[in-house]
């Protein structure tokens, strides 16, 4: 499974580097604007961290869409991987892409704190809330894909569970905005993301059709 996951990461690395390049450029531009025009009220600090996270989410969506379009399951099913391992690749790929971007964002915040000699805790918390939200959005893609696959394969229980958890996760994410900037604003989305991952993996293992 790790070999397959690594290969996918290598395959999508140009997308990731491209996304991070654009996001990095925008981030630098935002900092320049902040430096030039900061009138005291200021650009909220979390905004400058947003774009690296958005890049991770977009690349996760792109990767999921390409894998489905290229019918990767067919290739992997030629080898010794079980559906459980394939499900692992399905949910860990967006997690890995998002995780990398979250790490980069943390690095950027740390670097900023080092340069300015000041860490805006409120901004860090808000950024964490956004990170949780975007991470969960990235995991909702595979869940929706598996719930749709279950519908095509006429697995009614799986359809109900899949879409039920999807709706539940969206409600949790919506409610979590009320707590943005607090620990709940981060934990809520991460619980939603975890539930989406677990259910998407379970639905994948129950597939009756691996042709797409």
């Amino acid at each position: 499974m790790w070999h397959a996951l690594r290969a996918e990461l290598v395959y999508f690395r140009m997308w990731l580097f491209g996304g991070l390049g654009i996001a990095g450029g925008i981030t630098v531009f935002m900092h320049v604007l902040k430096w030039l025009f900061d009138d005291g009220e200021g650009v909220p600090g979390f905004l400058t961290s947003m774009f690296l996270l958005i890049a991770g989410m977009v690349v996760a969506f792109v990767a999921q869409s390409y894998r489905a379009e290229e019918r990767r399951a067919r290739l992997l099913m030629a080898g010794p991987l079980t559906p459980r391992q394939l499900a692992g690749v399905l949910v860990l790929l967006p997690a890995a892409l998002m995780g990398l971007c979250v790490l980069l964002t943390a690095f950027k915040i740390g670097l900023e704190a080092l340069i300015t000699g000041r860490l805006d805790i409120e901004s860090v918390r808000t950024t964490a809330s956004f990170a949780g939200q975007f991470w969960a959005y990235a995991q909702l893609g595979p869940l929706a894909q598996e719930a749709s696959a279950a519908h095509r394969q006429r697995r009614s229980r799986a359809v109900v569970v899949g879409w039920g958890v999807f709706v539940g996760a969206v409600l949790v994410l919506a409610a979590s905005w009320l707590f943005a900037g607090s620990i709940h604003g981060f934990l809520g989305p991460m619980i939603a993301a975890g539930a989406a991952m677990a259910v998407a993996a379970a639905l994948y293992q129950g597939r009756t059709d691996f042709t797409r």
């Binding site: 290969a7 395959y11 399951a73 290739l75 992997l76 099913m77 079980t82 293992q205 042709t211």
Partner: peptide, 23 residues
């Protein structure tokens, strides 16, 4: 699908083969 031992014996060529299209 959950018991992949049989796959050692099988070579399959379909219309779509799941290759990494960009490679």
């Amino acid at each position: 699908p959950a018991r992949p031992e049989y796959r050692r014996e099988v070579g399959y060529v379909g219309e779509e083969n799941g290759f990494f299209q960009g490679w």
